[in-house]
């Protein structure tokens, strides 16, 4: 479990990082290393050059302004989780992060690393997708911003070009009175989950559902938006029956097949339960609930 030989680059500016990346086709970006290093130790990845971003202070920030939480790619997951300003603007972020691995891993793991890694079982890609967030990348030809829904294309595959780096994630703040919930079920504390569900819920003046966002991890080849459930719920009066029905409707979103530890029907069962349960939780957190 030792990596094969590689060259190591430690750029101090984003510009340099992009240049090095452009020069070496067979290079990888090292952020927190929590996914990359095991892959290299298993020799599943044998890059010629490793570009370590840890000196890039310009990518290490968290800002809340104009109703948007902006997180630099190199911000550590733990730092974001513990940021009270972030939690005040959008409490779903903290609740989601608490489900990512264990504290020691979040101490090293970065937000950018998790998004670039694009594991459909991971929580952060689902958070971004559910929130209709945006991801900014930067390459030799400059910056561009991609909607989260378009960013995640397949397992470990994103809309980034090989010469681009992920630089920022932007997540809208919740509106006043908007409820939220993230919960998942994993066999062990901190593991990737059987399924996880993110919800936001806003009621209108008529107490009907004005806006609902619903997304799930662990059930498909990308973070899954449960748009059918969203459509179904919008405009209806919340009730336990309604939430249960939404759960049932969500089952079809599961596209991963049986694996040795988890059957598809079981995953569907958990997803349905989580959808209903998280809607209920979000509901209790709405204004005047």
């Amino acid at each position: 479990m030792k990596p094969s030989a590689f060259r190591y680059a430690l750029p101090s500016t984003l510009r340099d990082a992009i240049d090095i990346r452009a020069r070496f086709e067979d290079s990888v970006i090292l952020a927190g290393g929590q996914s990359l290093i095991p892959t290299m130790n298993f020799r599943l990845a044998n890059p010629e050059v490793v570009i370590d971003l840890r000196k890039l202070d310009e990518l290490n920030y968290v800002r809340v302004a104009d109703g948007v939480v902006r997180i630099g790619a190199m911000a550590r997951q733990r730092v974001v989780e513990q940021n009270d300003e972030v939690a005040a603007a959008n409490p779903l972020i903290r609740e989601t992060l608490l489900n990512v691995a264990h504290p020691v891993i979040r101490n090293r793991g970065t937000v950018g690393g998790s998004l670039a890694h694009a594991d459909p079982s991971a929580e952060l890609p689902t958070l971004l997708t559910t929130m209709r967030g945006a991801i900014t990348v930067c390459g030799p030809s400059g910056r561009r911003t991609i909607a989260a829904e378009d960013f995640f294309e397949f397992i470990f595959t994103t809309a980034m070009e090989p010469d681009e780096l992920l630089v920022e994630a932007a997540i809208p703040a919740l509106e006043p009175g908007e409820g939220w919930a993230f919960a998942e079920f994993a066999r062990r504390h901190g593991d990737y989950s059987v399924a996880g569900v993110a919800v936001t819920l806003k009621l209108g003046a008529d107490r009907r559902i004005d806006r609902v966002r619903l997304g799930a991890c662990g059930i498909a080849t990308t973070p899954a938006l449960l748009t059918e459930c969203e459509r179904f719920l919008t405009g209806k009066s919340p009730s336990p029956e309604l939430f249960a029905e939404a759960g049932t409707l969500a089952r079809d979103a599961v596209t991963v097949s049986d694996d040795s530890a988890t059957s598809k029907v079981y995953r569907q069962h958990v997803l349905a339960g989580l959808v209903a349960r998280n809607l209920t939780t979000a509901m209790t957190r709405t204004d005047g609930a």
Partner: peptide
Amino acid sequence: LSPSLLHSYVT
């Protein structure tokens, strides 16, 4: 006994 297995028993 995994949760998935228990689910299958109940099903």
